[in-house]
């Protein structure tokens, strides 16, 4: 069972794309890869005017991640708390993980030629902090949820 998830309160989100830049900035990513994405789709109009539903997508940190077994160097690792991350030392940039992932989540970092993806900001989480995208969300629309152990 995953211990964590990120939840978006669509009522508060204003589609400002702040979270995407908060993420790129904390991960030191160059132009190119995005580890999270905000999307807004028009929903059937309300009283004749469009309304919008916002969605936030990072990595799903799957229960049975297909990206993990396919990695030839065991660089893709699932932690006991559910976080799936890439050991940058071991990654050789073959991008097999991106092919295996149903949503092609892992992306190439053109600066390092290695795969990158969302790791729920595990360094911050391990230090008792929240992920960058959540901490700095412009409107406090993103929440980092820790599942209750049953």
């Amino acid at each position: 069972m995953n211990k964590y998830m990120i939840y978006l309160n669509s009522k508060r989100c204003i589609g400002c794309h702040g979270c995407e830049v908060h993420c790129k900035s904390v991960k030191g990513l160059p132009v190119g890869p995005f580890l999270c994405e905000i999307d807004h789709k028009a929903v059937p109009s309300v009283k004749g005017f469009p309304k919008t539903e916002f969605t936030f997508r990072s990595c799903y940190h799957c229960d049975n991640p297909l990206c993990v077994p396919i990695c030839p160097t065991d660089a893709m690792i699932k932690r006991a708390d559910g976080i799936v991350y890439i050991d940058q030392e071991k990654c050789i940039g073959c991008m097999a993980c991106a092919t295996a992932c149903p949503w092609a989540i892992p992306e190439m970092n053109p600066d390092t030629n290695k795969a990158v993806k969302c790791d729920y900001c595990m360094d911050r989480v391990d230090a008792g902090l929240k992920p960058a995208c959540v901490t700095k969300c412009t409107t406090h629309a993103l929440k980092f949820v820790t599942m209750q152990e049953v």
């Binding site: 830049v21 908060h22 901490t135 700095k136 412009t138």
Partner: peptide
């Protein structure tokens, strides 16, 4: 980050850039 005492950490895309 946005000042925790005033903005609870919130910052926009420009701020992070």
């Amino acid at each position: 980050e946005g000042n925790q005492h005033l903005l609870g950490g919130a910052l926009c895309a420009k701020g992070s850039a």
